[in-house]
Each structure stands twice: as C-alpha cells, then as structure tokens.
C-alpha cells in the first residue's frame, strides 16, 4: 500500500517506502505535553491519528514546535483538504494520506485549500501562530 504526502502548498508527492516506525508517534499514546520534550531533538516526527476527527494532531504539533522542535513534522492521517491550513498553522510540514483517500480528495482540492490567508481571528486577536515563532 503506497501513500501520498501533501505539502503545505497542497502538492502531492508519492511516498514510496513506509515511514520509519521509529519516527512515528501515535497521538493517543502521548501522556502529556511535557512528554514532547523527549522528541524535540529528533530530525523527524510523524504524528499518527486514527481519523480526521482526532484533533489532537493540531495541538500536539503546535506544542512540539513551541517546545523547540526544528525538524520535519509530518501528520499521518486521512485529513480533509479543509484541514490543511489548520495543520500548516500548527507547524506541520506535510500530511501523509493513503492512496485511496488521495483518489477521492484529489490534489486540486488540497491546492485550493492551501491558498489564502486563514486563521485571521487568531492573528487579529494577537495570537502568535507557531509558524511565526517556531
């Protein structure tokens, strides 16, 4: 089973080899934000979630960045194109989705969602987005 990586611009790249299991952290196994300190010095972290409605990936990604993680941050879950800007604003570099999911949620949909200024209210109320401080 191959998968597809969707970057911040919505562009697809086929993922040939399975993701290294050492990099993968299931968000359900995270005991607390303090536990993220153990991941901060890694080159790459893959946050895995079981479904697109598991919003832990967003909060965990942002806290990982805020705690100093500078490496490549991936989310492995079949997120919806509508969730790409949320992930991006939380410091996620790319989303890894299954090929089946990629067929239904095709690249143009992701590219469309990648456009435009989002999370305006957070900016407008003075909240620093992680991409600015990470």
């Amino acid at each position: 089973m191959t998968s597809v990586s969707v970057d911040q611009s919505g562009a697809f790249t086929p993922v040939a080899a399975p993701l290294a299991s050492d990099d993968v952290v299931d968000v359900a196994d995270i005991e607390g934000f303090a536990a993220l300190d153990a991941l901060v010095s890694r080159d790459r972290v893959v946050l895995r979630a079981a479904s697109c409605s598991d919003g832990r990936v967003f909060g965990v990604a942002r806290q990982l960045r805020r705690r100093g993680f500078r490496g490549v941050l991936l989310v492995e879950a079949n997120l919806l194109p509508d969730q790409l800007p949320m992930a991006t604003s939380c410091g996620v570099d790319a989303i890894v989705i299954t090929e089946t999911h990629a067929l239904r949620c095709a690249e143009p949909q992701w590219r469309l969602k990648a456009q435009g200024e989002r999370f305006g209210y957070q900016r407008a109320t003075g909240r620093n987005l992680s991409s600015e401080v990470g």
Binding site: G55, F58, G59, M86, S89, F119, G120, L129
Partner: peptide
C-alpha cells in the same frame, strides 16, 4: 474572536 476558526480547536 479568539475561538472562531481556532486551528487547534475545531476537532
């Protein structure tokens, strides 16, 4: 305003 479309808190 803070909570509207908050990227972390929609799910």
């Amino acid at each position: 305003q803070w909570s509207t479309d908050h990227p972390e808190f929609q799910f």
